[in-house]
């Protein structure tokens, strides 16, 4: 198996799929264009969306549609970033705590799930009452929405440490702190990154979601304004594509960081995982 050739053919396949998707979209758009009076509200042609990106027409006092999207993307991504880091920290600490104390794990685990099930509309007023500030509330809610994968994956990482290694640590009479520092924490890092990779795109969708809680700035606010026809509908379509792209990029960013943070681990992982990822084990 030559990984490079495989990767190329994978890329080709993805490309063909994207083409197929574009074709379906365009077919739909053509159909919509013939039957609706305002097709751009339902499904515009892709070239219209691209055109709107490069359009120089000002849609408010000073910005074009794309400038609005970019300016607000900055706000949303900043919040997503802070929320994500906060969520990752909370997730890691929770996992550590749960691993240290079985009781905590038993108590917390079901409730972590339940918290995820509370609609943010219910959560938001309470968080707002506590913080009295909408932007802090937004970051906190984004963190609440993203810590779960990190916590579960990291906990899984702690538990995946082979028993014999732990026994060895006990045999050499290592302290609890040492066990964590030398064995548990290093070996849970890949799992931690797995959690990060899941929650990074979530942080972005969560951040867009919490934008819609109130006016001000942010992609979500613009998305809802655009849907409410307070500005050109193409802002909405641009945000749809931008959020998808940024979401995917955020995932890859985590991979890159993982690579930088633990290069040797990555190298080993690739060797182990690569064949399995593509086909059955060689």
């Amino acid at each position: 198996m030559e990984p490079n050739r495989k990767q190329d053919s994978n890329r080709l396949a993805t490309f063909v799929w994207v083409l197929a998707l574009i074709l379906i979209w365009e077919l739909g758009a053509t159909l919509v264009a013939q039957t609706k009076r305002t097709p751009e509200n339902v499904l515009p042609h892709l070239y219209q969306i691209v055109e709107s990106v490069f359009s120089t027409k000002l849609v408010n006092g000073s910005q074009t549609a794309f400038q609005i999207v970019l300016a607000n993307a900055g706000i949303t991504l900043a919040r997503a970033g802070i929320g994500f880091m906060l969520g990752a920290a909370i997730g890691f600490l929770l996992a550590l705590l749960m691993n240290l104390m079985k009781t905590v794990e038993k108590i917390a685990f079901p409730y972590l799930m339940i918290i995820q099930m509370i609609p943010i509309l219910g959560m938001a007023p309470i968080v707002l009452a506590v913080t009295k500030d909408i932007d802090k509330s937004r970051v906190i809610i984004a963190a609440i929405l993203t810590f779960y994968p990190v916590a579960t994956n990291t906990l899984a990482g702690f538990k995946a440490v082979p028993g014999e290694k732990l026994e060895l640590m006990h045999v050499i009479a290592a302290s609890k702190f040492e066990i964590y520092r030398k064995l548990l924490i290093p070996s849970c890092i890949p799992y931690f990154f797995t959690g990060l990779k899941v929650s990074a795109p979530m942080a972005i969708t969560a951040s867009i979601l919490v934008d819609t809680l109130q006016g001000g700035g942010g992609l979500g606010t613009m998305l809802s304004q655009s849907l409410k026809h307070a500005m050109t509908i193409y802002v909405f379509w641009q945000i749809v594509f931008l959020s998808a792209i940024v979401g995917i990029l955020s995932y890859h960013l985590m991979s890159v960081i993982e690579k930088l943070a633990a290069p040797h681990r990555w190298a080993r992982k690739v060797k182990l995982d690569e064949p399995a990822q593509l086909d059955e084990p060689a």
């Binding site: 867009i208 819609t212 959020s243 593509l278």
Partner: peptide
Amino acid sequence: KWGIGGLTVVSAFNAIPIIA
């Protein structure tokens, strides 16, 4: 050969917020 590419594309859907 084709399936993995498809899955990659499908997983991109997950990066679009539901509210959109």
